[in-house]
Simulated assay, not measured.
Amino acid sequence: MRLGSVLPVEFPGGRRAELTVGALTDQESAEGFGTQGGIFFGLATLERYAPDGQDSALYVNAAPGTRATDLRARLERALTPFPQVQVRDQADYKELVHDQIAVLLYLVYALLGLAIVIAVLGVVNTLALSVVERTREIGLLRAIGLGRRQLRRMIRLESVVIAVFGAVLGLALGLVWGVCMQQVLALRGLTAFAVPWGTIVAVVIGSAVVGVVAALLPALRASRMNVLAAIAHE
């Protein structure tokens, strides 16, 4: 394609036209709309071939000396008969994007909560099997003087180690994935990068708490074993 080339164009409604290329730009997308390979038409051409089309966005520049608050108030008064049109400034647009991303984050948090429930059940199942498999060992430890409280503490510590190890491994993989995604998005202009250290610390602490909770039933079962029956267990 070059200047002067003729492009066949089909507009909404089935109208066709052959338009001449008047300029070429190095933009990868239409400014402000995120359309890959933006194509620009003059308003006269658009009104001719798509007279019933509606603008998805309209940018307004304030005249010199006009405050943004005054301009916004005037625009809102002028657009009162059109309830489908909303007036947004940069702060409103940021909030809109933030809310859209927040919906995705809430979905991720819901999936994370489900994963935590599954992880707790997995830890409980692992500890329960471990207690069953080590019945004779537990009986011998009790016979040589290990108290019930010490036994419960041992199983809780084992559960905490399992939970914290899984959390640290998951966080490490997540950070690597996040850095890789940020590097890819940086090519599209999203260069800001921040690590939520507070959230990371909270996840590690939470995993330790989850480990303690998951060990309650297996530890209680192990502490109630009959010592002689446990030693004789095959």
Rank of each mutant, 00 (worst) to 15 (best):
Y93I: 15
G13H: 04
I155E: 01
Q27L: 14
R72A: 10
Q183I: 00
V203I: 14
Q150T: 01
Q84M: 04
L7K: 00
G178F: 07
A232P: 07
L216R: 12
F40L: 11
Y59T: 02
E158C: 05
A23K: 10
L105G: 07
D92F: 02
A163N: 01
A222Q: 02
P51S: 04
A68M: 13
V21L: 14
Q183L: 09
V108E: 12
A62I: 04
L228N: 13
V184L: 11
V21Y: 09
G189Y: 12
L228S: 13
Q84E: 06
Y109H: 09
A119H: 03
L185I: 05
A167C: 08
L111S: 10
V168N: 03
L46V: 00
Q86R: 03
L217I: 10
D55K: 06
R2F: 12
T80W: 02
G147F: 00
L151Y: 10
Q90R: 15
R134H: 08
A172L: 14
V160A: 05
V201E: 07
L112I: 03
V201C: 03
A17F: 12
A230S: 14
G206I: 08
G198L: 09
V60T: 09
M154P: 03
E95M: 15
Q54C: 01
Q27C: 10
G53W: 15
R221F: 14
Y106A: 09
S159K: 08
R148K: 02
A102E: 14
V120M: 08
V123Q: 01
F193V: 10
T126I: 08
A119F: 05
I144W: 10
G122I: 01
N125M: 04
A230Y: 14
D26P: 02
A232R: 15
R152V: 07
A202G: 08
T20I: 13
T45D: 14
Q86H: 05
L140Q: 05
M225V: 02
H233D: 09
I39H: 00
R2W: 10
Q182A: 07
V160W: 08
L169G: 07
S29L: 05
P64F: 05
F41G: 01
A230C: 13
G113L: 09
Y59E: 00
G211H: 11
A50P: 06
R142L: 02
P64G: 05
A143I: 07
P83C: 08
A78C: 01
L187Q: 12
P51F: 07
L24V: 10
L58Q: 03
D55H: 11
F40H: 12
A229E: 12
E18D: 08
P81D: 03
Q90M: 13
T126G: 00
P8L: 02
V227D: 04
V195W: 06
L228G: 06
S56Q: 09
P81I: 00
A44K: 15
F41W: 07
L140C: 10
G170P: 07
S56F: 06
D52E: 11
P196H: 11
I200W: 08
P64N: 07
V201M: 06
Q100G: 11
G139M: 07
V97Q: 13
R88A: 15
P81W: 04
L24Y: 11
V204P: 05
L146M: 15
P8Q: 00
T20Y: 00
L187W: 01
